[in-house]
Amino acid sequence: MDESEDVPKDFIKLKSEKLSVEEVSELVISPYCGAVSLFIGTTRNNFEGKKVIHLEYEAYTSMAETEIKKICRDVRQKWPSVKHVAVHHRLGLVPITEASVIIAVSSPHRVESLEAVRYCINTLKASVPIWKKEIYEDEYSWKENKECFWANSEK
């Protein structure tokens, strides 16, 4: 089999429409791969006892895409057997329980794609300029990822 027929690809998209698990997982399927690993980040209905009505995401889109490309590049250095990587992140208003991010990675065997998908989401939370606002019944709050090194350390 000539594996050059299915060259490794990165699929990166930030969009305001609902994300599709099926679409993202199909992007990375390859006849050379026996594993597709997925991470789906969904929106929760509560925070510290407060009822969350919905969430709103915004991004520095051009830089966010650049930072996600860097993550994909790092993945290929760390796990050279990884085939395709897909990262879709939703922007704008996201109702409770819907996906805010879906990451899919394919590899010939499962270990590499499982490790790579974990690396992708952890690094995304630390370095990609996207912001989430949680809207409660009578207030709101800008969230801060614990992975963000310049966030206020008391939080």
């Binding site: 966010a64 992140h89 805010s100 995304l124 990609v128 300029p129 996207i130 912001w131 990822n145 963000c148």
Partner: peptide, 10 residues
């Protein structure tokens, strides 16, 4: 030049 408050993607 962008002002980048703590990020919260994901």
């Amino acid at each position: 030049v962008a002002i980048i408050p703590p990020i919260s993607g994901g």
